[in-house]
């Protein structure tokens, strides 16, 4: 662990597209993955993050710095998170959720998941397939079974495919 006094320790993170980022250890250890590395003493050199690209990592580091600058006040942290995510598009959110998962950052993970879930709300099957680039791999029999399985949730309401 870093010494109690003196200048704050800085870590160097490397994205999978070879960009290097400097970040204060105190902020970086929001990621349990990085914290474990620090605790195991293997954070001395460059920390390679093979599953995160530079654009996403830059964003995650902005978040790390922003949230760790806020003292223990859940209310303020929440509003920071809301603001941080407010201008992110769907694709960025998807990258963030993967990065948060890989870096094991539960607070970011929860916030991004909630945001993605909001996008998914009230959407029809057709919309989800289009948006997520999924093609129907059900046989007609399966399709009928799936429909039967979920009939109870719709109470006779048809979802609007154009949504």
């Amino acid at each position: 662990m870093a010494a109690e006094t003196g200048t704050p320790t800085t870590l160097t993170l490397k994205s999978n597209d070879d960009e290097l980022f400097s970040v204060a250890e105190s902020a970086a250890i929001l990621s349990v993955t990085i914290r474990n590395m620090v605790e195991d003493g293997c954070a001395g050199g460059v920390i390679p993050l093979d599953n995160v690209d530079g654009k996403t990592l830059a964003s995650v580091i902005t978040y790390m710095n922003g949230i760790s600058a806020i003292p223990a006040d859940e209310e303020k942290k929440k509003s920071y998170r809301d603001k941080f995510l407010s201008d992110k598009d769907f694709e960025t959110l998807a990258d963030m959720v993967l990065a948060a998962n890989y870096l094991n950052m539960s607070c970011l993970m929860d916030a991004v998941s909630a945001k993605i879930a909001q996008v998914m709300e009230k959407k029809s099957v057709g919309w989800v397939r289009r948006k997520f680039g999924i093609e129907n791999d059900y046989t007609p029999e399966e399709e009928a079974a799936v429909k039967e399985e979920h009939k109870w949730t719709f109470e006779g309401v048809e979802t609007d495919d154009d949504n």
Partner: peptide, 18 residues
């Protein structure tokens, strides 16, 4: 986790895709 944040109808829509 995403599923768990959605209501039953939205979960059904996701489940029905593939």
């Amino acid at each position: 986790q995403l599923f768990s944040l959605l209501n039953y109808r939205d979960r059904a829509s996701l489940s029905s895709t593939c």
